[in-house]
Write a protein that binds this DNA or RNA. Structure first.
Length: 518
DNA sequence: AAAAAAC
């Protein structure tokens, strides 16, 4: 495997970042297995049983620090294994009481690790991932979140659990009622930490943290970690080590290179038709369509069903049962289109999501990264298409600038002046029709790109830095489980994308050569 | 301004 961490930022005695640690200069940082970090054999075995053999960069970088009991602010791009980055250490610390940092209070059945997530579905997913790694050691993992009956959750707590994963409201509720004892918690994780420390969540998160021992280990993880959040986070942490798993040089550090990104200038009334055409892509697997409002999500799902697509919506106006049913059907491939609000923007990991469509432009660059990051995970490639309508122009301008996508100002791309498109590798003509030789790209069928008229100009973000070596030959859930994709796309691994003809792109990777999949 | 998150 060619993936390797590029640098780790180490703290000085005050916990401040002091510089960059370059792995090549100090020997290998990515050993061949979890065992090399001293991870408990039964955890290693459970991981191996699910096809996970070698740690991803964020995991390799995090493990030694986390097992030492230190606080961590961990940042790695979408789909690169953050969940096990905290899941493995928190489990190891539960089963290995002699490790440094363990406070040696035997409290079987009392929660010793608490993971907090911003949505119920994510809490559920993370619970499952940790449970898999914990299975052979009999560590009990449970999810605590709202929208569901109290009784089963209370029953699980009564029976005894060592790891609790949940959303803030229900956790506080049950803790306040004395059903959830957080006084033995030794590890607290804020997943999607920048979101959890945002205004809407911060008061609840503070309450939860206050219920845990001050001596706890605190770990924050997210793909996006603004400096202001890091500064704020230090108030709740003890000399945190800031760990960033960044792609190799040449990468702008923002978007995932494996996600091919397109932007369409779209008139609101044309969006459904444009979407329908994109959904006819020949090599499309599962697709998530994002909207900014619950109403639009429901409406678009309806429109698509009317047109014969197997779609369902996922948003906060649905009952929890319906939400989970929609996600379950999507995971199982019973429907291949999920139309969601930003409830599904963060963390949700579904195999074989080949396309993400921003039916409504995301609010900011963080949301753009998280939404588009539902595809292109774990070494696979993906396609992200964003519709930008008149109202979105300023919004998109900010995203484009913040992420350095290199896409011309949307106000300019709206112009039909051909010079403005000369640098783009998708040629546009007066009619917006593409020449025959250029019709298939981004996994979109030729028909999809035809006849889109003024709104049909696709503007592809140039690849950053032309270095794709960091795309690991791995696949599967949380980036590491083996398994096949459906829907073809057996192509060769993309080479440096900056100098490749466009038509050779967009092939999903083959699955061979995985260091973890055999 | 929207969405999320407890009852």
């Amino acid at each position: 495997m060619t993936t390797q961490p590029d640098h780790i930022t180490l703290p000085d005695d005050d916990g401040d970042d002091v510089g960059t640690y370059v792995p090549e200069a100090a020997g290998p940082v990515t050993p061949p297995s979890f065992s090399d970090f001293g991870v408990h054999p039964l955890i290693v075995q459970a991981l191996a049983d699910s096809g996970i053999h070698a740690p991803f960069p964020i995991q390799a970088m995090t493990l030694p620090v986390a097992l030492g009991g230190h606080d961590i602010i961990g940042q790695a791009k979408t789909g690169t294994g953050k969940t096990l980055g905290f899941g493995v250490p928190l489990l190891h610390r539960i089963v290995s009481p002699t490790d440094p940092g363990y406070d040696d209070r035997p409290a079987p059945g009392k929660p010793q690790a608490l993971v907090v997530a911003p949505t119920r579905e994510l809490a559920n997913q993370v619970m499952g991932d940790i449970k898999t790694a914990a299975s052979l050691r009999g560590i009990r993992v449970t999810a605590i979140y709202g929208g569901r009956a109290f009784e089963p959750q209370l029953e699980a707590l009564r029976a005894g659990v060592e790891v609790v994963v949940g959303t803030p409201g229900r956790l506080i509720d049950l803790a306040g009622q004395g059903h959830l004892d957080l006084s033995y918690v030794q590890t607290v994780v804020l997943d999607e930490a920048d979101e959890m420390l945002d205004l809407g969540f911060l008061p609840d998160v503070e309450k939860l943290l206050a219920m845990t021992p001050a001596s706890r280990q605190t770990m924050l993880f997210s793909a996006t970690m603004p400096g202001a959040v890091v500064a704020l986070a230090r108030r709740y942490m003890t000399q945190p080590t800031h760990i960033r798993a960044i792609n190799e040089e040449g990468d702008s550090g923002h978007t995932v290179a494996a996600i091919e990104q397109f932007v369409y200038r779209a008139h609101a009334m044309d969006k459904v038709e444009m979407l329908a055409r994109i959904l006819q892509a020949r090599e499309r697997g599962l697709t998530i369509v994002f909207s900014r409002t619950k109403r639009t999500a429901a409406k678009v799902a309806d429109d698509l069903r009317e047109r014969g697509f197997a779609s369902a919506s996922l948003h906060g106006d649905l009952g929890q049962g319906a939400r989970e049913q929609a996600l379950r059907a999507f995971r199982a491939g019973k429907i291949d289109i999920l139309v969601a609000t930003d409830v599904a923007a963060r963390g949700i990991d579904v195999e074989n999501v080949t396309h993400v469509v921003n039916y409504q432009c995301p609010e900011d660059e963080k949301t753009y990264l998280h939404r588009t990051g539902r595809t292109g995970r774990a070494g696979n490639t993906g396609v992200a298409v964003t519709f930008v309508d008149w109202d979105d122009l300023p919004r998109w301008g900010l995203i484009n600038k913040a992420l350095d996508l290199g896409i011309p100002d949307p106000a300019e791309t709206y112009s039909s002046s051909p010079e403005l498109f000369s640098d783009l590798d998708i040629p546009t003509t007066a009619t917006g029709r593409l020449p025959r030789s250029e019709r298939t790209r981004a996994g979109l069928d030729a028909e999809v790109l035809e006849d889109l008229g003024e709104t049909g100009k696709a503007h592809r973000a140039p690849s950053r830095g032309g270095n794709d070596r960091s795309r690991g030959d791995r696949g599967g859930r949380d980036g590491q489980r083996g398994g096949d994709r459906t829907g073809g796309g057996q192509g060769s691994a993309p080479a440096a994308s900056g100098d490749r003809p466009a038509r050779s792109r967009n092939r999903r990777r083959t699955r061979g050569g995985s260091p973890q999949g055999s």
